[in-house]
Structure formats: C-alpha cells, structure tokens
C-alpha cells in the first residue's frame, strides 16, 4: 500500500516566523499575499493566545513543535 497524497506541511525551524517560512517555502506566491495565505491555512497557530509580554516569543505564535501547512485543505 503506497502513501496517499496528503496536505503539504513542514516542521518549523527554531526561529521561524511567518515571513521566514514564506521566504523559504512559498517563493512561488505573490509576496503581498503570501503571509496572509499562510496564516489562513494555519488558524490553529494564528489564533493562538498571545505570548506573555516578557516572553522571547512575543509577536510570533509559531512554536517549534507545530505542524505548519503550506497549502489549503485538499478537497
């Protein structure tokens, strides 16, 4: 049994944010739309409660353990 096609995803690198993932993985998308699209495919990350003000992760909700989708859900 071969593996069926699934929604494309990556594990983020340690310091990844939306912009670095777009730059590395989504260079085919128009830059002005890419971050918004990436966020819309990853609402489980984008909608996450903000980090505390004293956290080094302020402003970046992406965690090293996350799954980040690089495309919309497959129909």
């Amino acid at each position: 049994m071969s593996l069926s096609t699934q929604r494309k995803s990556i594990y983020p690198l340690a310091e990844d944010d939306w912009n670095s993932i777009v730059a590395r993985e989504l260079s085919n998308l128009a830059p002005e739309d890419a971050v918004g699209q990436l966020q819309s495919w990853n609402l489980h990350v984008f909608m996450r409660p903000a980090a505390p003000k004293d956290s080094p992760r302020v402003g970046n909700p992406i965690l090293p353990g996350d799954i980040i989708f690089l495309e919309a859900p497959l129909t």
């Binding site: 409660p49 505390p52 956290s55 090293p64 353990g65 799954i67």
Partner: peptide, 21 residues
C-alpha cells in the same frame, strides 16, 4: 504533547521541542 497548556494558558514545555529533539 502538542496541544496542552499550562496554568497560565501558555504551551507546556514539550511544545517548544523541535523535530531534532
């Protein structure tokens, strides 16, 4: 765990581990 949150509603430590860990 990839979902659990601590008492301050922040991710538990395991969620800060990357794939190499």
């Amino acid at each position: 765990s990839f979902v659990d949150m601590d008492e301050t509603l922040q991710p538990v430590p395991s969620r800060y581990a990357d794939m190499r860990e």
